[in-house]
Computed example of a mutant assay.
Amino acid sequence: MLKDLTSEKLIRLQIEADNWEDAVRKAAEPLEDEGKIKASYIDAIIDSVKTAGPYIVITPHVALPHARPETGALESAIGIATLKAPVAFGNADNDPVKYLFCLSAKDNNSHLGALADLAELLENKEFFELLDKTNDPKEVIDYLNH
């Protein structure tokens, strides 16, 4: 479940980012701070986007930064970040990105239920309206719990 993999400490709202790389680093930072990932995991996300292109931009305005478990995932977790001003990732269909759901998966399967929950949330206009108006991570957690 998504609510089991995130917490108030993993949420950053209305952050300022200069570009896509800065956005990814700032969105992933709480996961590193909370011991869910190593710094190498963030570098692996950025390297894979530079190599493979902006495949992490999964739907309009939404990115799912992630990397292989062996690159530094310590625990499965999902960080939620919103950007004050959207940034381009180079994905013609889905740019600019405003919402980042940073995924740390310690293996290939344990996070799949949370991803299914996230996919449902991404269909929910109300969820994005909340993300746009709140500055309080607790409001996001409360929403996920109901």
Rank of each mutant, 00 (worst) to 15 (best):
I58D: 01
I58C: 01
I58V: 15
T59P: 00
P60Y: 00
P60K: 07
P60E: 00
H61Q: 14
H61T: 13
H61L: 01
V62P: 01
V62S: 02
V62K: 03
V62R: 01
A63H: 05
L64P: 00
L64Y: 07
L64M: 10
L64Q: 02
P65N: 02
P65R: 10
H66Q: 12
H66I: 11
H66C: 11
A67Y: 01
A67H: 03
A67E: 02
A67R: 02
A67V: 05
R68D: 13
R68F: 10
P69G: 07
P69R: 00
E70W: 01
T71G: 07
T71V: 04
T71M: 13
G72H: 13
G72E: 10
G72F: 09
G72Q: 10
G72W: 14
A73K: 04
A73P: 13
A73I: 06
A73M: 08
A73F: 07
A73L: 02
L74G: 08
L74P: 10
E75W: 07
E75H: 14
E75K: 15
S76T: 15
S76Q: 08
S76P: 02
S76R: 06
S76D: 11
A77Y: 12
A77N: 12
I78L: 14
I78T: 10
I78S: 09
I78N: 09
I78M: 15
G79N: 10
G79W: 11
I80S: 03
I80G: 01
I80V: 13
I80Q: 05
I80F: 08
A81M: 05
A81Q: 01
A81E: 02
A81C: 13
T82H: 07
T82W: 03
T82K: 07
L83A: 00
L83M: 06
K84D: 14
K84C: 06
K84V: 08
K84N: 15
K84T: 12
A85T: 15
P86R: 04
P86L: 10
V87M: 05
V87A: 02
V87F: 03
A88K: 14
A88T: 10
F89Q: 03
F89T: 06
F89K: 13
F89Y: 13
G90N: 13
G90F: 09
G90E: 13
N91S: 13
N91F: 05
N91P: 05
N91L: 06
N91W: 11
A92T: 14
D93R: 12
D93G: 05
D93Y: 01
D93E: 15
N94W: 13
N94G: 08
N94Y: 15
N94I: 06
D95K: 04
D95N: 05
D95R: 02
D95T: 02
D95G: 03
D95A: 05
P96E: 07
P96K: 04
V97L: 09
V97D: 06
